[in-house]
């Protein structure tokens, strides 16, 4: 009875959030006195999968079916359910991503499992009961949820724990055939369009985010945001009013009805900090607010603040980052 961890890969690499998930799974396995096996989805490379040993994974199942490169809900669900059956896994850990959570909910019905998404801490295990802490009320609270039953599925929120790196440890990569048929790929995408991300950093995976609001006065001023983001190796984001008027694309909108981010550093430039915006960013570790209005509500949620004109302050910050070398 091992713990099964679902790792998402893209362009051959294991996603950062999946390294965290692998670490989480290995720790749960240790608590249960068993080992953690991973099953890979997406475009994986065997040598990178072997490196999951650094996160404490002992074995990685990899189905080389080429159609698994893109997310296909039914196929992924069957693949993971088959892997869980083969390994006798009663605990499945996934990322709380658009892929992980979507597959998790289907799996929970198929495997008659209890499911918790948006989980932020390791479980407290008491016999067959797991108690997990999950984010609720759009980041404004936590809920301690009891997962009963024989089988449990946990989707771990990004940046909730640090990925462990035990250099030199490797996992055994094992070929795995889930016997997927054409029917399992019936809802396969016709086309996959990846966004052209500034500096190649994906907002949902980013460690650092520089975000602009209406205080930026227009899309022509976004180079100030992008310059600082580039210097910090950060992703760029924006508030809802900015994407509503098409200064920036919708996929950069963070907030209540946009993307939720939880980076280590969130820098808000010219954003007043409406409660709907805070809902998307309030689990960031460190929040910096730059606004010329000292009464902007965002300062109440910030760790660091500068009361000043973004057009004056941003170039200074970019210069200071570059000076760090």
């Amino acid at each position: 009875m091992s713990v099964l961890v679902v790792v998402e890969c893209a362009e051959g690499e294991v996603k950062k959030s999946s390294l965290e998930v692998a670490t989480y799974g290995a720790k749960v396995a240790a608590m249960l006195g068993t080992t953690a096996t991973a099953v890979a989805v997406g475009e994986a490379k065997a040598e990178n999968l072997a490196k999951l040993g650094e996160q404490g994974i002992t074995k990685v199942l990899y189905d080389a079916e080429p159609r698994l490169k893109d997310f296909v809900n039914n196929a992924y669900t069957k693949l993971i359910a088959t892997a869980a059956g083969q390994e006798g896994a009663k605990v499945i850990i996934l990322a709380n991503s658009n892929i992980g959570a979507a597959v998790g909910s289907r799996l929970s019905v198929r495997l008659k499992a209890s499911l918790a998404t948006n989980v932020v801490e390791l479980p407290k295990i008491d016999g067959s009961n797991f108690m997990v802490r999950r984010g609720a009320f759009s980041g404004k609270a936590f809920a301690e949820v009891s997962l009963g039953g024989d089988c449990k599925i946990i989707a771990v929120k990004k940046n909730s724990l640090e990925a462990q790196h035990d250099a030199g440890k490797t996992a055994e990569v094992v070929a795995f055939v889930a016997q997927l048929t054409d029917a399992d790929f019936a809802d396969a995408p016709q086309q996959v369009v990846m966004q052209d991300q500034a500096g190649g950093i994906l907002l949902p995976e980013a460690d650092r985010v520089v975000s602009g609001g209406r205080g930026m006065k227009g899309p022509e001023n976004w180079h100030l945001i992008e310059d600082l983001a580039k210097a910090l190796h950060a992703a760029t984001a924006c508030s809802k009013p900015v994407s509503d008027v098409d200064w920036r694309p919708h996929h950069e909108h963070v907030g209540q009805t946009g993307i939720t981010v939880s980076p280590n550093l969130y820098i808000a430039c010219g954003i007043s900090g409406a409660i709907q915006h805070l809902a998307g960013v309030n689990s960031s570790k460190v929040i910096v607010v730059i606004n010329k209005d000292p009464e902007a509500p965002f300062f109440k949620a910030a760790d660091y603040g500068i009361v000043g004109d973004v057009f004056d302050v941003l170039p200074k910050l970019t210069a200071a980052v570059k000076a760090l070398g």
Binding site: S108, A113, M131, A141, A143, E144, V145, S146
Partner: peptide
Amino acid sequence: ARTTVAEFALP
């Protein structure tokens, strides 16, 4: 239901 909330907490 399969899950129950035991307790809520504020950050």
